[in-house]
Design a binder for these strands. Structure first.
Lengths: 188, 188
DNA sequence: GTCTATACTCAGATAGAC
DNA sequence: GTCTATCTGAGTATAGAC
C-alpha cells in the first residue's frame, strides 16, 4: 500500500496541503488563495508544495477528486437519488468546496485546463451510475416513465450546479429543499 | 445625449474595447484573455484601456451589463418564458459570453468582487420581472398552480445556468431543448 | 523523496508626462 | 485621453541541500 515505508510522510503531507488549501479558500475565497499563502498554512515553501502537485490548478483538482471519492464511499449504500440531495445539503456546510467547484468548472471550459478531463469524466461517470437508478425508479413508478433518463440526469445535475451558484451569492437559499422539490416534480 | 461632442469618441472606444474583450475570450478563453492582449486588439495600451474601466474585472462586468440590456430590449415584447428560452438558445451562438458569465459568477461569490453586486441585483431584477409572468401563467393554466412562483424562477434560473456550465464542457448538449423540456414539466 | 532559496516571467495596476 | 515607465505580486522552473 501507499501508506507504507518512506512514502507515509509524503502521503500525509499531501493531505495536509489539500486541507490547508481548502481552509484558505473557505476563509478568503479562491481569488486570494495564493500558492504562497496555502504553502505557509501547510508549513512549507511554495516550491515544496509544487513538488507534490506540479501546479496550483492540479492541486485544486486533487481536492475535488478527493471529495468525490469520499462522497462515493459514504453514500455507496444509499439510493442514488436521496444521496444526491444529501451531497448537496452537505455542501452547504463546506463553503470553500462549492466555491472551488464553481470556479474550476468555469475554468475547465478551456480544453487545456487540468480540470477539463476531470469534469468531463465526472459527468460521464455520474450519468453512468444514475442511468440504471433512474430506469429502475421509472419501473418502480417513482419517476414518470415518459421522461428520458439522460435528460433527467442532465437536468438534475444542472439544477444542483445552478442552485449552488445562486447559493454562493445568497446563502439563505435552501439548495437541498429546492432540489428535492424538483425531484418531486418528476413523480408520476 | 452621450453621443455628442467631445465624449463621442470615448463612448465609441469603450464599445470597441468591450467587443475586443469578448472576441479574445471567445477565441482563447477567459484564462488567456489578458488586459494586454485585449488592449492590443482594441488598438491601445493596457494603461489606456484601464483608463476606461478602472480594472479588468469591471470591464468584464460591463460586457455582461451590456448583454443584459440588449436582451431586455430585444425581448421586451415577447412573453417572459419563451424569451428566457430564446436567450439561452442565442447564448450558444456566443461562446465567449457564456464562458465569461460562468467565470464571473463564480468569482462573484466574494463580496469584494466588482461583479458581486451586479449578480445579486440581476437575480433580484429577474425574479421581480418573472414573478408577475409566472403568476399570470398559473392563472391562465399554463403552469401548475400548486408551485411556488419564487421556486419556479429560482429553479428555472438554476437549470439555465447549470446547462450552460455543462454545455461549455460538451457543446453537443442542446441547452434550449433541455430547458424547454423542464418548462413543459411545469404544465398542469 | 522531500524540500528550500533564488530567480524568472508574466500579470494587473499606478504615476505622471505629454 | 493616452502613453511610457514602473511597481507589486502572482505562478513556477531550476539547482541543489538533506
Amino acid at each position: 500500500m501507499a501508506q507504507r515505508g518512506a512514502y507515509a510522510k509524503g502521503v500525509a503531507k499531501r493531505e495536509e496541503i489539500l486541507e490547508a488549501a481548502l481552509a484558505v479558500v473557505a476563509e478568503h475565497g479562491y481569488r486570494k488563495a495564493s500558492v504562497r499563502e496555502i504553502a505557509e498554512t501547510a508549513g512549507l515553501s511554495p516550491a515544496g508544495l509544487l513538488h507534490y502537485f506540479g501546479s496550483k490548478e492540479e492541486m485544486f483538482v486533487a481536492i475535488l477528486e478527493a471529495r468525490d471519492q469520499r462522497d462515493l464511499r459514504e453514500y455507496a449504500e444509499s439510493d442514488f437519488i436521496s444521496a444526491f440531495v444529501d451531497v448537496v445539503r452537505h455542501n452547504a456546510a463546506v463553503p470553500g468546496l462549492v466555491h472551488l467547484y464553481a470556479r474550476l468548472a468555469a475554468d475547465a471550459a478551456d480544453p487545456e485546463h487540468p480540470a477539463h478531463d476531470f469534469f468531463r469524466q465526472r459527468t460521464a461517470q455520474l450519468e453512468a451510475i444514475a442511468r440504471g437508478e433512474i430506469v429502475a425508479a421509472q419501473q418502480a413508478g417513482t419517476i414518470r416513465a415518459d421522461l428520458d433518463p439522460a435528460w433527467v440526469m442532465r437536468t438534475a445535475h444542472a439544477v444542483a450546479d445552478g442552485l449552488q451558484s445562486a447559493w454562493m451569492l445568497d446563502p439563505t437559499i435552501d439548495m437541498a429543499a429546492d432540489l428535492e422539490q424538483f425531484l418531486n416534480l418528476l413523480r408520476p
